[in-house]
Amino acid sequence: MMRRTPRPLERLMGLFFSACGLTAVAFVLLISLYLILAGVPALRETGLPDFLLGRQWSPTAQRPEFGIAPFLLTSVYGAAGAVLLGAPIGLLCAVFLAKTAPPRLAAAVRPAVELLSGIPSVVYGLVGMLVLVPAVRRCFRLPDGAGLFSAILVLAVMILPSIVSVSEAALRAVPPEYEAASLALGATQIETVFRVTLPAASGGVAASVVLGVGRAIGEAMAVLMVAGNAANMPSLFKSVKFLTTAIASEMSYSSGLHRQALFSIALVLFFFIMLVNVLLNRLLKRKGG
């Protein structure tokens, strides 16, 4: 038999599709490369320990100091606070949707969760700025309500949808036999859900929480509008800057070493996010296997 050579169009399209696939890889490499190239000079200048652990951020002072410990800790505290607040509520809501709600009700609540995830972050920021911040100020008798606490509340709401949807999917994937076995032992439905279904879905639930952490660390605009934006060490009611908001608020007027330092912050943030992503993929893969 004679082997027919592929027609030119066929070969062209094959090449085109391979190129498309490789573009995705190329983008990741390019982004990583450029963040490293842009971020390393300032790290060299200040030294990694001083940069990460320095408690003073005064880029425009006579003798500028570039210590991002305030931002780092604020991001960590902010994400932790948001998860502490958002994860239990999200998880309970997921249990409600997946297990105890009548199907009609669940079908009505689920779109609400999806809509919540579709609201742009500036809109969250706007409402946070004009409703939440004054409320916090009045509730706690503060001079200003903008600060870590308000940011945590906004972030908690913003990570709810991802926690709910990923956990719900994990809960639904638990084999019904587990639940039947538990019920046959005389456990009630609620006991079954909390003592058998939830532990069995723990991988997916953990993934949802990690996803929430990633979202909370990466969110910029909403936080920018409610956190007050002073480079303080984090404290619940103080005005603070996150890693993201430091970049967003200072990039427009920065120059020289200050600008490079902002790129270094981006590099640190990127590193954090990559860690979170690796963890997330591990969890999701383990659940699959």
């Binding site: 990039m251 990127f270 997330l280």
Partner: peptide, 12 residues
């Protein structure tokens, strides 16, 4: 790419 926060996209 799905996990990178938008502020990083902004910078990149």
């Amino acid at each position: 790419l799905a996990g990178i926060p938008s502020i990083i996209y902004g910078l990149a």
